Amino acid sequence: MRWVLTLLLSLGAGFAGAALWDAAGFGGKATRDYLLANPEVLPQAMEELQRRDQQARIAPLRAELETPFPGAVMGNPDGKVTLVEFTDYACTYCRQSLGDVADLIAANPDLRVVVREFPILRPESVDAARMALAAAQQGKYAAFHDAMFRLGPPSADAIEAAAKEAGLDLAKANAAIASGAFDTHLRTNAALANELGISGTPGWIIGDQALNGAVGKQRIGAAIAEARES
């Protein structure tokens, strides 16, 4: 398996020329015969390559990733295991994942969920994300988050209704939004997503793993257990 992984790493680095292939010792009948006889090693090696790539991307960003906008945390704010979610209030799959996150929080008392607003689907998503951060500033993030997904998709009326349901001081929230107080954080979230290769929502980071889409609570739960053990 090690030499197969080395082969794939070499190809990934651009060593596709026949001369380099042979120089690296990957050519010849023995190699071809082994791969034909054991084709299952290639998917296994690709999976390991992907895992290593994820680790390399996440490791230098971990501290920043797991440091939330103040108040934009759900679950146990002092939890030992951190799940990072990139989300957009216009995202149907994010809405579908809301119950999964609630179930995971209930099942894992040590779970801290850092939510990163990643409004990419429509202009109103940006407005909803800004109001969410205003809610976080007022200590009412979770209430707004749940109400916005329930009342969405985001529109001016839905955002205001969610803010009122969460009990926000709207004058204070709108003043903070107008000041541009949250835009730097939103740009940071977009930059982090780009560095991690997250191009859609929901996107999840847990331990050394990056998961994309509504993968379900079983898959996320398994990643939480692995992160806890590492």
Rank of each mutant, 00 (worst) to 15 (best):
L20Q: 12
R32T: 10
T31R: 07
V41E: 02
E40Q: 14
V41R: 02
Q50W: 10
A19M: 01
A19L: 05
M46P: 01
Y34V: 03
Y34T: 04
L49N: 09
E48A: 15
R32L: 12
W21S: 00
A30F: 07
F26S: 01
G27P: 13
D33I: 03
L36F: 14
G17Y: 02
M46Q: 15
D53C: 01
A24D: 05
A19I: 01
P43F: 13
A19N: 04
L20G: 02
K29I: 13
V41F: 00
P39K: 12
R51I: 00
R51E: 12
Q44E: 15
Y34S: 07
Q55C: 01
Q44P: 01
D33W: 06
V41P: 00
R52N: 04
L20A: 13
Y34E: 04
E40N: 09
G28F: 11
Q50T: 11
F26I: 00
P39C: 14
L35T: 08
Y34P: 03
G17T: 03
A24R: 15
A23G: 10
E40S: 15
G28Q: 13
E40Y: 07
Q55P: 00
G25Q: 08
Q50H: 15
R51H: 09
G28T: 11
L49H: 13
E48D: 12
G17H: 02
E47G: 14
A23H: 13
V41T: 09
V41Y: 01
L36S: 04
L35M: 05
G28N: 12
G17M: 03
N38W: 03
A45Q: 10
K29C: 03
E47D: 15
F26H: 15
A30R: 09
V41W: 00
R51V: 00
Q55S: 06
P43A: 09
G17V: 02
L36D: 07
W21H: 13
A45N: 09
D22Q: 09
K29G: 06
G17C: 01
A37H: 03
Q55F: 06
A19S: 06
L42E: 05
A18H: 07
G27I: 06
L20T: 14
P43T: 07
Q44V: 11
D33M: 07
A45K: 05
P43D: 06
G25V: 01
A19V: 07
A23I: 02
Q44S: 11
G27D: 10
A19E: 11
D53T: 09
E48Q: 15
L49K: 10
E40M: 10
K29E: 15
D53A: 14
R32S: 15
G27H: 08
A19R: 04
A18M: 03
Q54E: 11
N38C: 01
Y34C: 08
W21L: 14
R51C: 00
A18V: 07
G27E: 07
P39E: 12
Q54L: 00
E48C: 04
A19C: 00
L49S: 11
L35V: 11
G17E: 05
L35G: 04
R32I: 06
L36N: 08
L20Y: 01
P39Y: 05
A23Q: 14
A30T: 14
A30C: 02
P39L: 10
R52P: 00
G28L: 08
Q50F: 13
A18G: 08
E47V: 08
A45R: 05
